[in-house]
C-alpha cells in the first residue's frame, strides 16, 4: 500500500474534530478533500500518525449570505462553490478564479477550506481571499477566533493555525459600490498550478478615481503576495492606460522577489506579472464602472 499506516477517526461534528485534534497535536492531520494531503501521503512525504476525516462533518459544508458578506463553510467542495449562484453574485472574484483550480475531478472533492489551510503559494484561493480582505474563523477546544487573510498567511505553506485549530469558515465581504475585480493566471497546461497569477479587487469613487486596490499575486513568493507599491501608484488617480502601465511595472519590479525553478525563471515570472497586471486591471476597472464582462477564459 502506498501511504504509511495511520489511526483513522471520522468525527461527526466540529467539536468532536477539534477535541481529537487537541488530543493528538501535531501528530494528527485533518483530512478535508485529500487532494493535496493524499498525494503527499502516497509519496510518503507526509506520514501523519493520526487522520481526522472531516468529510462527515456536515455542519462545515454550507454557503450562506449574511450582513457582513458571504459565509462559506470550510468543507464546501470547490465544485459546489463554482456552481453556486450565490457565490457568483456575492463573491464574483471567487467565481471567476475557481475554474483555474486544478481539474473538475479534483474540484468535486477538494474543499475551499483545505485549499486555504494548505496555503500553497501557487494556489488561487489564498490570493483571491487576500485580495478580497476575507476573514477566517478558526475553531479549537479553547474557543473561536477570527483572523484576517493578511494575518493568516505567514509564509511557505505557513498559516496562523495552531496545532489544535481548525479552519471553520471563510467570510467574504460583499462587493461595495464601485467595486471591480479580475483574475487571470498563466500556466503551461490548463489546470496546472499557475506560473504566475493575479487576483485584483479595486474600487472607484464618485469621481472615477481609484479609492482602493488590492492586487494579490500567486506563485511569485512564499505565499500570496500583496503588490502594495503597485496599489500605491493607483490610489487617488484615474486608472488611465498610463497609470496601469506604471502599476504593472511596480508589481513586476518592486513588489516581488520571485523564485527561479524548473517551471519558470524569476525574470520570466516578472514579465508574466507585468502582462497579467496589464490584462486584469482594465477589466477590473471596467467592472467598477459597471461594464458587464465575461471572465477571461483560461490562458494556455
Amino acid at each position: 500500500m502506498k501511504p504509511a499506516p495511520f489511526e483513522y477517526h471520522r468525527p461527526g461534528t466540529t467539536d468532536e474534530a477539534v477535541t481529537l485534534l487537541a488530543e493528538h497535536g501535531w501528530e494528527a492531520k485533518l483530512l478535508a478533500g485529500g487532494q493535496s494531503l493524499i498525494p503527499a501521503m502516497n509519496f510518503r512525504l507526509a506520514q501523519p500518525g493520526v487522520l481526522i476525516d472531516l468529510n462527515n462533518v456536515e455542519e462545515l459544508a454550507y454557503i450562506r449570505d449574511g450582513d457582513v458578506g458571504l459565509h462559506i463553510g470550510a468543507m464546501t467542495r470547490q465544485r459546489s462553490a463554482e456552481r453556486s449562484e450565490l457565490v457568483a453574485a456575492r463573491a464574483p472574484l471567487v467565481h471567476e478564479a475557481l475554474p483555474f483550480v486544478a481539474h473538475p475531478q479534483i474540484r468535486s472533492r477538494g474543499t475551499i477550506g483545505g485549499s486555504i489551510a494548505h496555503a500553497d503559494p501557487a494556489s488561487e484561493l489564498p490570493a483571491v481571499t487576500l485580495a478580497l480582505e476575507a476573514r477566517f474563523r478558526l475553531r479549537s477546544p479553547r474557543g473561536a477566533r477570527s483572523v484576517s487573510a493578511d494575518e493568516f498567511f505567514t509564509g511557505l505553506f505557513g498559516t496562523a493555525l495552531e496545532s489544535d485549530e481548525l479552519l471553520a469558515e471563510i467570510e467574504i465581504p460583499p462587493p461595495a459600490d464601485g467595486a471591480g475585480w479580475g483574475f487571470a493566471e498563466i500556466s503551461r497546461r490548463h489546470g496546472d498550478y499557475g506560473l504566475a497569477g493575479l487576483a485584483a479587487a479595486v474600487q472607484l469613487d464618485g469621481d472615477g478615481k481609484c479609492s482602493k486596490a488590492r492586487l494579490a499575486l500567486l506563485s511569485v513568493g512564499d505565499g500570496p503576495v500583496l503588490a502594495t507599491s503597485a496599489a500605491e501608484t493607483l490610489l487617488g488617480a484615474e486608472p488611465s492606460e498610463e497609470a496601469i502601465r506604471a502599476a504593472a511595472n511596480a508589481a513586476a519590479h518592486r513588489d516581488i522577489d520571485p523564485p527561479s525553478d524548473i517551471h519558470a525563471s524569476a525574470a520570466y515570472r516578472r514579465r508574466l506579472v507585468e502582462v497579467l497586471t496589464r490584462r486584469v486591471l482594465p477589466r477590473a476597472f471596467d467592472r467598477a464602472r459597471g461594464v458587464d464582462l465575461k471572465p477571461i477564459t483560461h490562458e494556455a
Binding site: 493524499i38 498525494p39 465544485r79 479534483i106 468535486s108 472533492r109
Partner: peptide, 9 residues
C-alpha cells in the same frame, strides 16, 4: 460526480 479514486481512501 467524477473523482480520482487514487486520492480517496
Amino acid at each position: 460526480e467524477a473523482v480520482r479514486s487514487c486520492l480517496i481512501f
